[in-house]
């Protein structure tokens, strides 16, 4: 049974979260001021920082899975994506991303193009396109449209909408309440590394 993402007693140097559940098709908006722990929570979920606690995806515990396999199932796109190669093509080694790149208006980008020559918005859309092409079971997006103009932002939302309807498990950090409303995200406020309202 697809139960979504369940987090229990997750702690790291920055966060201390007792209980969060993100169900398929019922996406969550992580809100809170800068430095409140939104990114740290996402990093802890994908096991990128040292942390303790239980995280399960569709009933399968993270502790029973190797970290590389876990990160294939649950994909995190940081607010400022990193790149390990110098050219776009260095990052096109995974599943075919032509469709998602096209849907995000990146048809003009060539594999031999330098990553440094892309605009901040293009890099953010490229990271999202590559992440979506991997068809993750759960997606953690850290302010995915913060550097985008209105048209690009609409492209992202248009792409995410049917995926959410199809049962994607989505957690998205955003400072834009209108975007949360448009995508039907349930608000989850983080403050000082804790979920507001939790003991």
């Amino acid at each position: 049974m697809k139960t979504g993402l369940e987090i229990r007693h997750l702690t790291s140097a920055i966060i201390d979260v007792a209980d969060i559940a993100v169900r398929p098709g019922a996406p969550v908006a992580l809100v809170g001021r800068s430095g409140s722990g939104k990114s740290s929570l996402m990093r802890a979920i994908v096991d990128l920082d040292r942390n303790e606690g239980e995280v399960m995806l569709h009933g399968v515990s993270r502790s029973g899975m190797s970290a590389p396999l876990w990160r294939q199932a649950i994909v995190y796109v940081p607010a400022e994506p990193g790149w390990w190669g110098e050219r776009v093509g260095d990052h096109l080694t995974g599943p075919d991303s032509a469709e998602t790149r096209s849907a995000l208006g990146l048809d003009h980008i060539q594999p031999d193009q330098s990553i440094d020559r892309l605009s901040t918005g293009e890099r953010q859309r490229l990271a999202l396109a590559l992440a979506l092409a991997r068809q993750p079971q759960a997606l953690l997006l850290d302010e995915p449209t913060a550097a985008l103009d209105e048209t690009s932002r609409d492209m992202v939302e248009t792409l995410l909408d049917p995926m959410i309807a199809a049962g994607l498990v989505l957690m998205m950090a955003t400072h834009d309440p209108e975007q949360a409303r448009r995508l039907g995200l349930q608000r989850l406020e983080i403050d000082g590394g804790r979920v507001r309202g939790e003991a």
Binding site: P68, L69, Q72, E80, G82, W83, W84, G94, A127, R134
Partner: peptide, 15 residues
């Protein structure tokens, strides 16, 4: 110096 790039690779499921 290249921590973010290495982490980006790890996030794709790389070892």
């Amino acid at each position: 110096a290249r921590r973010r790039g290495i982490e980006a690779h790890l996030l794709t499921g790389a070892t």
